[in-house]
């Protein structure tokens, strides 16, 4: 008798040991995993990314090779022209992969630029406060009122001759131009979060322990504002991809023979009457990519801050 009750007690203890405290992040992850649209998007986006990076290595065609005898060929399995060729006789599938590569790279890098500037700016302004905060946020407000797309266009025009024939420099300029535009909202979000954090006990404890302000920002503020920042990042990437495509559509973005989704769509739109596939495939690729990012961003937001659901 005694044995069984001891066993029962033991089991009870083990059960208690099995119950672990769940952090907010664990909850968020569970909610995110339950969001089928977000999970599907994540898998799909991973596949697209791997294809964009590795696809051109194994594909039998080069992105800038002109097949003079196969101009404007409709999609066919013959010679592996599965997405057809464009008006200059280049394989559309491999061009699409290259376009995805460029668009994704622009999206990620330009967002990263905006992330770094925005987080540093916002956290500093919010943490120091007072006159410094007022000045820094006034600068953000002023920049907000600018018709930014005009400045990006002017920038691209100014440096166009300068970067012709230097694709790396040209892409770098796009990164900087777009990244420099997108950091404003990030700075505002981070500042708001920082101000909310500033009054918390653990910051006060760090201050009392004599930690230097910059270290507090780096070690205590930045990790704690990451939630909303991550959400905003996933929503910034698609808007950056759109911005780049928009520039390329106007002929101010990536230059030939290199390509991006926007550039492919622009040339597809010109040939759509005779070669509808040159518009269709890039347009679908763009849509799917943006869909994925938006679904992931929405999923993350609902997971971290589930009040809307």
């Amino acid at each position: 008798m005694l044995g069984t009750s001891q066993n029962a007690h033991k089991e009870e203890l083990m059960e208690q040991a099995a119950i672990q405290g769940r952090s907010l992040w664990d909850d968020a992850r569970t909610r995110l995993m339950r969001n089928r649209a977000a999970v599907t998007s994540f898998i799909l986006l991973s596949i697209i990314t791997v294809l964009a990076i590795a696809g051109p290595w194994v594909w039998p065609h080069e992105y800038d090779h002109v097949y003079k005898l196969n101009v404007g060929k409709a999609p066919t399995t013959e010679q592996w022209f599965v997405f057809g060729t464009d008006s200059q006789g280049r394989d559309l599938f491999v061009r699409l992969l290259y376009g995805l590569r460029v668009s994704l790279a622009v999206g990620v890098v330009a967002t990263f630029v905006s992330l770094v500037i925005g987080v540093i700016w916002g956290a500093t302004a919010g943490y120091i406060g007072g006159k410094v905060d007022e000045l820094m946020m006034r600068i953000v407000d002023t920049l907000y009122a600018m018709p930014f797309i005009f400045f990006v266009i002017i920038l691209m025009v100014v440096f166009k001759d300068f970067t012709t024939g230097k694709p790396a420099l040209n892409i770098l300029l796009i990164f900087v131009a777009i990244g420099a535009v997108e950091w404003l909202t990030m700075a505002r979000i981070v500042r708001g979060q920082t101000i909310a954090l500033k009054g918390k006990e653990f910051i006060e404890a760090a201050e009392a322990a004599g930690v230097r302000p910059f270290t507090i920002i780096r070690r205590h503020i930045v990790p704690n504002v990451l939630g909303p920042v991550v959400v905003y990042v996933t929503l910034t990437i698609p808007s950056v991809i759109l911005a780049e495509s928009f520039l390329s559509f106007l002929g101010l973005g990536v230059q030939e023979p290199l390509t991006s989704l926007g550039k492919l769509i622009a040339s597809g739109a010109q040939d759509m009457e005779t070669m509808p596939w040159t518009l269709m495939f890039p347009a679908i690729a763009m849509m799917v990519t943006l869909f994925c990012f938006n679904f992931i961003g929405d999923g993350l937001r609902d997971a971290i801050d589930p009040k809307d659901r």
């Binding site: 698609p238 769509i265 849509m287």
Partner: peptide, 9 residues
């Protein structure tokens, strides 16, 4: 869908 399809499409 509206957000993900750009106007130039």
């Amino acid at each position: 869908t509206g957000i993900s399809i750009p106007p130039f499409v």
